[in-house]
Write a protein that binds this DNA or RNA. Structure first.
Ligand SMILES: [Mn+2]
Ligand SMILES: [Mn+2]
Ligand SMILES: [Zn+2]
Ligand SMILES: [Zn+2]
Lengths: 142, 142
DNA sequence: TCTTCCTTGAAAGTTACTTTCAATATAGTT
DNA sequence: AACTATATTGAAAGTAACTTTCAAGGAAGA
């Protein structure tokens, strides 16, 4: 999988006249191996273990690049910082306001009703976000 | 309506040992008269027409106060700044990414399905946000 | 190898708040 | 009305999380 993703990235770079670099290789491959929602600083810590000279800005720019070529999604769950995740099937999120746990969900019935609502207002959907905030199963017994 | 709202605010102030001031009166009454989603700067401009000496910070703090006593909701539609609106029936939003128009919607079926999803994950809902981004009816003919 | 254009990291800049602080304004008590 | 304790205000300073700038260094086609 990660190999495929890297190939996709390389194809995009070539197509846009951009260059392959050690930094992009390290940052992207580390990101592709991550299976959760990760912030810039946190990803920076990981890549620094491999290549200590890499800076915040390069991680930031590489994540924007991955987003641009459709390999990453940027999320904002209200705590002020962006989290990135590997692109995949569409889904929405439930966020625990006590422990920060993020649970992904997807419900085709909700998606369909959403389409219906938009249609009623002659509104053409480009994207959406549906976030549920509350207490996860572990955090309910205070 | 606005009178009732002002009374509610005054009750809250008294209850918390806070004070009634000319600034709070002007800011709150101006806000209560606003029927759209309004930013701090924009509300500041309005109140300055009545009381030019009022500053940004007082508007900011008063909006937090209104939020605290349940008379205002704070929204973030992704453009970086907060918008406030008078509290009322729960609803979600569709935001036009071309002209910025905000359309409110509410669908009990979606709300119910959302409850169902949360229940499946043993997740206790505290709040949620469901935002649809796209083109409003006016902005579809580019 | 040459040369052009891209990339990098540090530092500076930006935005939208958020906090601090000294002066001033409430409002309950004489 | 005067007194007093506490809250409020506005200007200015501080913060957080990016975002842009720029000079030095690194790809990659010729
Ligand atoms: Mn996700
Ligand atoms: Mn609304
Ligand atoms: Zn939790
Ligand atoms: Zn529009």
């Amino acid at each position: 999988m990660a190999l495929n993703l890297m190939e996709t990235l390389k194809g995009y770079l070539k197509e846009k006249g951009l260059k392959q670099t050690r930094q992009r290789e390290v940052i992207a491959s580390t990101f592709f191996k991550t299976d959760k929602h990760i912030g810039i600083e946190e990803l920076l810590e990981k890549v620094k273990n491999i290549e200590p000279s890499i800076g915040y800005v390069t991680v930031y720019r590489t994540l924007l690049l991955l987003k641009e070529c459709g390999l990453a999604h940027q999320r904002n769950f209200g705590d002020g910082q962006s989290l990135f995740e590997n692109a995949g099937e569409h889904h929405d999120h439930m966020i625990c306001i006590k422990c920060g746990k993020i649970v992904e969900f997807e419900d085709d019935r909700i998606e369909a009703l959403q389409e219906e609502v938009a249609k009623n207002y002659h509104f053409k959907i480009v994207s959406h976000r549906h976030e549920i905030y509350g207490a996860c199963s572990f955090c309910q017994t205070e």
